[in-house]
Every structure is written in C-alpha cells, then in structure tokens.
C-alpha cells in the first residue's frame, strides 16, 4: 500500500508545530499502524531526519501509552481498540491519513505526537484509591460481593487511562475517566466509606487541572 501521511510535528513543548506530509510506500496490509510508523521513522533516520516521536509501549492494547488522533478520531476508525491494535488493512491504497496528538489544555504536547498526561495521575492521586495500608487485612472472602456488582465494578475498572475520552470529547472533559474510577469503587463494599469524598476530590481536581465540562 502507498499512503500519504499528514503528521503534526512539533519540536518541543514551547515551539510552534505544523503539519508535515510524508509518503510511505509498499506497506503491508498486515502490519499494524505503529509498525507503519516504525517504517516511516526508519526511513527518516536513514535520511538523517528526526523521526516522529510518539508514545507506545505494550503494543497489545492494554498499557494505554499509544495515543494518536487519526483522521478525526482517537485511535483511528476501528471500535474499542487502541492505535497499536489498528491494522493497515483497515485503510485503502492511496489513502491520506491525518495524524494529530491528543488536544486538551491539561495534555500539553511535549514533542510531535507525545502529550503529557500526568494530569491523569494527579486525578488518581487526589483520591482515586481506597485508603488501606499494606497488611493486617481480613480474609479476602470475609465480605461476599454480589457477582453482578463485581462485574459492573470490573467494567469500570477496565479503563486503560489512555486519554482517548478527553481527546474525543468536544469539551475536552475528563468526566469519563473520573467516573470509571469512582464507579469501580462505589460498587464494592471496600470502596463505600470514602465514596463521597472520592467523588468530590477527583472532580475538584479535574476542574483545577482545566479539563472541560
């Protein structure tokens, strides 16, 4: 496959960025989106140009590092997968693909497609936990938890913290991220005692950080 890529390039947090157009040729439809980016970068390095910086790590859809806004959609055109799981067979030969970083004031661009998501860590630090110390805990089966509640809690807990919800939201809101954490704990007896404070503290933090509503 031959493709035209329009990629946001920005040297560092303070410099002004711009879109740069690249051509990549002979891409296998079986390669993943990030492997296509690897091929582009490899060719840039050979030419002595600065490769495109992007966050990525596990490349199996769970770590939440990869974060590309592809053709107007976080993680690209497929449903419920991350950028690293997107495969090139999803595109057509000759396509033009526009790749942007997440855009939100609390997610400033550090370089090219890399944004700083420490805001999410700060939200969790503000209260996204159950206050227990290590050790001295009663047996794990001491409090039965209805299966349905455990399942609902797990649904919420599955959030990978990638920030796509903020990137997609027209208001750059982090409500989904917060609500996932708050509801995970709210469904469990262990999380009930702090439920109200947790909600207030984490919401106060997203407001402080400048996310939208």
């Amino acid at each position: 496959m031959d493709l035209t890529l329009k990629i946001w390039r920005q040297k560092n947090a303070t410099s002004k960025g711009k879109f740069v157009t690249y051509k990549v040729n002979g891409i296998s439809p079986n390669s993943s989106f990030l492997e296509m980016m690897d091929i582009l970068n490899e060719s840039l390095v050979v030419k002595g140009e600065d490769p495109v910086a992007f966050d990525h790590d596990c490349r199996e859809g769970i770590c939440g590092a990869c974060s590309m806004y592809i053709n107007g959609r976080p993680h690209g055109p497929d449903k419920a997968i991350t950028t690293c799981q997107l495969h090139m067979r999803r595109f057509k030969d000759g396509d033009t693909i526009v790749i942007e970083p997440w855009r939100a004031r609390p997610f400033p661009v550090l370089k090219d497609l890399i944004v700083d998501r420490t805001a999410f860590d700060k939200i969790i630090q503000a209260g996204g936990y159950i206050s227990v110390n290590t050790g001295g805990i009663p047996d794990a089966n001491a409090i039965p938890i209805p299966r349905a509640n455990a399942e609902l809690s797990m649904d919420a807990a599955a959030c990978i913290g990638c920030g796509a919800c903020v990137a997609a939201c027209k208001n750059a809101s982090a409500m989904l991220f917060v609500s996932a954490k708050v509801s995970q704990f709210e469904r469990l007896p262990e999380g009930k005692p702090e439920a109200a404070e947790r909600g207030q503290a984490t919401v106060a933090e997203i407001d402080r950080l400048g996310f939208g509503n």
């Binding site: 329009k6 107007g72 855009r103 939100a104 750059a172 400048g210 996310f211």
Partner: peptide, 17 residues
Amino acid sequence: IQNWMARPQRYKVEGYS
C-alpha cells in the same frame, strides 16, 4: 468558555463524536 479554554488548539480533522 471553560470548554473552549480546555482545548485551545483545535484538531485539523474535526471530530468524530
């Protein structure tokens, strides 16, 4: 206004949502 401020730089390809 807060929502606008939360995304000072818009996307080139505006939103799927």
